[in-house]
């Protein structure tokens, strides 16, 4: 579904040359949930923006379902970390979710159905008329997720979406992502710096090195499909996997 080949990104500006991503190659199969985890400042966001067509890579290529990505493709939706800035405060929740659909030239009836369905799935069916700033942080991020769902993407890109919410809300939102993924069969690429989150959510975890980024290791998460906060997190296999990822991230930080 998603193929990243030899992705390389260098920022050049004001006489300074920063190599953010050195050489990344990985692929995500259709319907897979892959987590990218790495030390902070390792170019995760740069990588995701290249994948989403928001940044042009210096070299290498990204393919979505076989087609090269050279701009934001219609089959991809993005959920940003900064929900407060990503949702438009001048639009009500329903309008925020509907706006991308208008660009897709869907009929009004279809748009309404998609908006209602998406808000329903994130548990905010009655919030359509509210403004985003009238909602709590966790609810705002749910709205951003609903906007992505209504867009009916083949691939959902999530850039540290829960980094700014409190621990309890984060656990709820993680379960929401797992449930939506299982129900809807969307392909999800989830970037996080939280090791537990990566192991809990992912079918596969890619550990990235420190910047300039390469893939250090790929781990298959062989936990049962049905996961919950209470039992999965005390599962001995979960502990093993998180230890493994933790060691890799620590080693990445030390640059070995």
């Amino acid at each position: 579904m998603l193929d990243v080949q030899g992705l390389h990104k260098v920022y050049e500006g004001s006489g300074r040359r920063t190599e953010a991503v050195r050489d990344l190659t990985f692929s995500v199969a259709a319907g897979e949930l892959v987590c990218l985890v790495g030390p902070s400042g390792c170019g995760k966001t740069t990588l995701l923006k290249c994948v989403g067509g928001l940044l042009a890579p210096t070299a290498g290529e990204v393919r979505l379902a076989g087609r090269p990505v050279d701009g934001p493709p219609p089959g991809m939706a993005f959920v940003f970390q900064e929900y407060g800035r990503s949702l438009f405060p001048w639009m009500r929740v329903g309008q925020n979710v509907e706006l991308p659909l208008k660009q897709k030239r869907l009929s009004r009836q279809r748009r309404r159905a998609l908006v209602a369905d998406a808000l329903e799935s994130v548990g905010l069916a009655d919030a359509a008329g509210a403004y985003p700033w009238q909602l709590s942080g966790g609810m705002q991020q749910r709205v951003a997720i609903a906007r992505a769902l209504a867009y009916e993407p083949e691939v959902l890109l999530m850039d540290e979406p829960f980094a700014a919410v409190d621990a309890q809300t984060r656990a709820e939102l993680e379960d929401l992502v797992r449930r939506l993924w299982r129900e809807r069969g969307i392909t999800i690429l989830f970037v996080t710096h939280d090791i537990d989150e990566a192991v809990y959510l992912g079918e596969r975890v890619l550990v990235l090195s420190a910047s300039p980024t390469v893939v250090r290791e790929q781990l298959k998460v062989d936990l049962p499909d049905q996961r919950d906060q209470l039992h999965t997190r005390v599962n001995p296999r979960f502990a093993e996997l998180r230890t493994r990822v933790y060691e890799q991230v620590q080693a990445a930080k030390r640059g070995r």
Binding site: G53, P72, P74, A77, F78, F80, S86, L99, Y151
Partner: peptide, 10 residues
């Protein structure tokens, strides 16, 4: 972020 959101949604 708002600008990138708009771009990413086409």
């Amino acid at each position: 972020v708002a600008e990138e959101t708009a771009r990413s949604y086409g």
